[in-house]
Simulated scan of single mutants.
Amino acid sequence: MQLVERSDLLNFCEMQVMVEESQLELTNVAIGKTATQSSDWSASFPASNAVDGNTNTNWGSGSCTSTQGEEGAWWKVDLGANYLVYVVIVTNRQDCCETRIVNSEIRVGLSEDISQNTQCGDIITESQTSQANIYFQCISPIFGRYVSMQLVEGSELLNFCEMRVIAEEL
């Protein structure tokens, strides 16, 4: 609603917007898919832990993943097919070390080279890391097969517990 050719106040009490129910069926398309990372902290915390469907935020649960401390550490999942990706949800550790994902970004696209893909959402800030689930809303759905998370600044472990890729199956 906008006033046109007037400078009065715009004042109203309620607005209702009616839309038809969407036929979109969005699901987590990352569960069980092939995941890789720049390095493994240990054999007990491989990349595949982040797509096992277990959203436990405790390191001791055996469901988290971790790289070694390195510049530009990254994690990537190959969805095995092309999807329209709407949202990526990262489940962060909550038992300790929550800030290990600060300055990370999510990228989605068709290239195995994650730097060639489109960023989804903003870079993770320290204030977000206290949340168990961090949501990355893509500005518009991104067509892609690969979804990645990468530290874009600093030399640290990349360490988190689950990544869900909410997408439309084509």
Rank of each mutant, 00 (worst) to 15 (best):
V88I: 05
I134C: 02
L170Y: 08
V108H: 12
D40K: 01
L157V: 03
M18C: 07
E5K: 07
Q16A: 10
E126C: 04
L110N: 13
W41M: 13
N28S: 03
S130K: 10
Q37S: 06
S44P: 00
S38L: 02
C120A: 04
T27N: 11
I123Y: 00
T129S: 10
E20H: 06
Q37E: 12
R164A: 07
S42E: 14
R164V: 00
F143I: 13
L10D: 06
S48C: 05
S104H: 10
V77H: 03
E105N: 08
A50D: 13
C97Q: 15
S39R: 00
S155L: 00
N92E: 07
S130M: 05
S42T: 11
L157S: 02
G121M: 00
G121N: 01
Q2V: 08
Q68R: 02
V17Q: 01
E71I: 08
G62L: 00
R100Q: 11
A35D: 11
E20L: 02
N54G: 07
A30W: 03
C96W: 12
N56M: 03
N117T: 01
G32D: 01
M149N: 07
F160L: 11
N92G: 08
Q23C: 08
P141T: 11
S22V: 05
V4H: 15
V90Q: 13
T57Q: 13
V4L: 12
F136Q: 06
V29I: 12
G80C: 02
E70L: 04
N56K: 14
S155E: 07
V88H: 07
E168D: 01
L24G: 05
D113L: 05
Q94W: 14
Q16K: 10
L158I: 14
N49H: 01
V17L: 15
N117P: 04
C13W: 07
G154I: 06
F143M: 11
Q128S: 05
I101W: 07
R100K: 08
S127V: 06
E14A: 06
V29Y: 14
T99N: 10
R107H: 03
V85I: 15
N133P: 14
K76T: 14
V165K: 00
F12I: 03
S148Q: 11
